[in-house]
Write a protein that binds this DNA or RNA. Structure first.
Length: 571
DNA sequence: GCCGTTTTCGGCCCGACTGTTTTCAGTCG
């Protein structure tokens, strides 16, 4: 039983309670619990087995702790089963349609017997929804649009696409008439691994001109809303962008409000409330008087807090840390001195050894690890022992001829089903940098997978665990293992954990970075480059590391080449 | 259903926009 499954159960309970019009605070409790559980790096099942008191988790009280135990034991809980019997099984799907909430879902069920997305589509297409009191033709159209969006899965986009989109919008706004400054906020500013939409704050000198300039942005396909405060559009790519007009006096408060996260904002507002203040997107107020708002720093300070980097604003302890002055000094892109995972055209890369190294040097690095695949990855033309030894010799020879640059002769060796490595120990022992990764049998049971990873970690020849969870965001689920046990084994064996910067992977995920740091591990941020341009993906790995509270000292490849050489030779 | 320097009861974050209404409910972030 995964934490995400427990979270899904709590969310489903909340969905049903909402449709039933239950107490909003009870519903909120289930939502909070779902989030709390979903963010947890330790597995609930393990905590329960160890006899830990689950009510110590945020948002979990007696009742929910009991339900967690029930879910772990039986895969479900009575509350959910009872609720499910009271409504058609797929009615909660209706809530996924943008613009459709619990109240209308209930009305649609009661008046039109709509029980599923399919029913909804049929009714909307037949023009039946407009006849319901409180709804009209536009509501019907919105529902049809919402259904189309849902079907096209134009939901969340990856961090790379979001970054490109943000960049393009920035180019458009630069020098636009009526626009003084702008900033992309929302989950993109927090560097979340996927982004639902883009929130752009715009300070204007001329609102009318600014709105006109915005609407002239070429990729806009549809204008969703256009009021005095904001312009909402959908781009041809399916991405929704909200432009919000902000006054200079409220800029900082608006930045905080729209950057979120929602949970983080709630913590701040509660804190303000306790001080007799009110915090909203216009500022921090005592009565009608604005006491702060121009800059984020000013607002945080008025709340008795250090400025909190956006990446940390997830209600994961950052407000408490800011209060005590304990915030981490987060790692930055420029702290990195080299890349520790790259392939060449000898296996499945597109660049030669020389091209990859040259590209790394151009990026100001001091070293690059060449880590081609081992033979088990046949589709990548993985190397056997002899071929790898020859490759390593060639890399070393090439490296020796370079001034002020070190090419580490490495490998990305496969961790086979049973935890054995795909190459001989003596081959691996002779390399500078050994990344061990899982590329097969992703579906293994948790206990087996845990043993498999620990065996690799304890092999004595592995430096780093590559893309530890093996996930492909939106395509392949993470493998299941007991992270705390594997991390403990890594710590014991002096094995590093990779933060794979490839946008589809971003693996280690943020909450596990944070957990690994707490357990005293060191991470290596690496791009898994398959072509020279992939080296630029490093930025995305840094974003994950920052979301995981990592400092410069928590990341191996912030070391200089000389220091890295020394560190690795100590193994 | 959770939670506590207003602590075991009585609170629980805040505002904008849309579409449908003649003053507001529903939804979203």
């Amino acid at each position: 039983m995964e934490n995400s499954q427990v979270a899904a159960i709590f969310d489903e309970i909340a969905d049903i309670l909402e449709i039933q019009g239950e107490n909003v605070f009870r519903i909120r409790s289930y939502r909070n619990a779902a989030r709390s559980v979903g963010d947890l790096p330790e597995r609930l099942e393990d905590l329960a087995a160890a006899g830990k008191d689950l009510t110590e988790l945020p948002g979990i009280g007696e009742s929910l702790a009991e339900k967690i135990h029930e879910i772990i034991a039986g895969g479900t809980c009575k509350t959910l089963e009872d609720l499910r019997r009271q409504l058609p099984p797929h009615l909660t799907d209706l809530l996924k349609v943008k613009g459709l909430g619990p109240k209308r879902a209930r009305i649609l069920y009661e008046k039109l017997r709509i029980k599923s997305l399919a029913d909804l589509k049929k009714a909307a297409a037949a023009g039946k929804i407009r006849d319901i009191e409180g709804m009209g033709e536009k509501t019907e159209q919105n529902i049809l649009r919402g259904l189309a969006t849902l079907e096209s899965e134009a939901g969340r986009i990856g961090v790379k696409q979001a970054a490109e989109q943000a960049e393009s919008i920035g180019r458009h706004l630069r020098g636009a008439k009526g626009v003084r400054r702008w900033e992309v906020t929302g989950s993109f500013r927090r560097r979340r691994e996927t982004v639902g939409d883009l929130d752009v704050l715009v300070e204007v000198t001329d609102r009318e001109a600014a709105a006109q300039a915005i609407l002239a942005y070429e990729p806009i396909e549809e204008t969703i809303a256009s009021g005095g405060e904001k312009v909402s559009v959908r781009l041809a790519s399916g991405v929704q962008v909200d432009f919000r007009f902000i006054e200079a006096d409220a800029w900082g408060a608006a930045m905080m409000y729209f950057t979120g996260s929602k949970a983080h904002n709630i913590v701040l507002r509660k804190r303000a409330q306790k001080e007799g203040l009110k915090l909203n997107e216009y500022g921090l107020f005592r009565g009608a008087k604005r006491v702060a708002g121009r800059s984020e720093k000013e607002v945080f300070k008025a709340l008795g807090l250090e400025w909190i980097p956006p990446e940390l604003r997830e209600d994961r302890g950052e407000v408490e840390a800011a209060e005590k002055g304990n915030l981490p000094k987060l790692i930055e892109r420029d702290d990195l001195r080299g890349d520790l995972h790259a392939h060449t055209s000898l296996t499945d890369g597109a660049g030669t050894l020389e091209e990859m190294v040259e590209a790394a040097r151009r990026r100001g690095y001091e070293y690059l690890a060449i880590t081609d695949h081992s033979k088990a990855v046949t589709v990548a033309h993985g190397l056997g022992d002899d071929a790898l030894r020859r490759h390593a010799d060639r890399i070393r020879e090439y490296s020796a001829g370079l001034k002020k640059f070190w090419v580490l002769a490495g490998v990305e060796v496969d961790i086979l089903k049973d935890g054995q490595l795909d190459l001989q120990e003596k081959t691996l022992a002779g390399l500078d940098w050994v990344v061990a990764s899982v590329h097969s049998a992703f579906e293994q049971a948790e206990a087996k997978m845990t043993d498999r990873l620990i065996a690799a970690v304890r092999s004595g020849v592995v430096h780093c665990l590559g893309h530890p969870f093996g996930r492909l965001i939106g395509k392949r689920d993470p493998i299941r293992f007991d992270a705390d046990r594997v991390f403990a084994a890594c710590r014991e064996a002096g094995v590093y954990l990779e933060i794979n910067a490839y946008p589809d992977r971003l693996d280690l995920p943020d909450v596990y970075c944070k957990r690994a740091r707490e357990l005293g591990l060191t991470m290596a941020i690496a791009t898994d480059s398959h072509r020279t341009t992939d080296l630029d993906l490093m930025e995305f790995g840094v974003w994950v590391a920052r979301r995981g509270w990592l400092e410069k000292g928590d990341v191996l490849n912030t070391l200089s080449a000389a220091a890295l050489r020394k560190r690795l030779s100590r193994k």
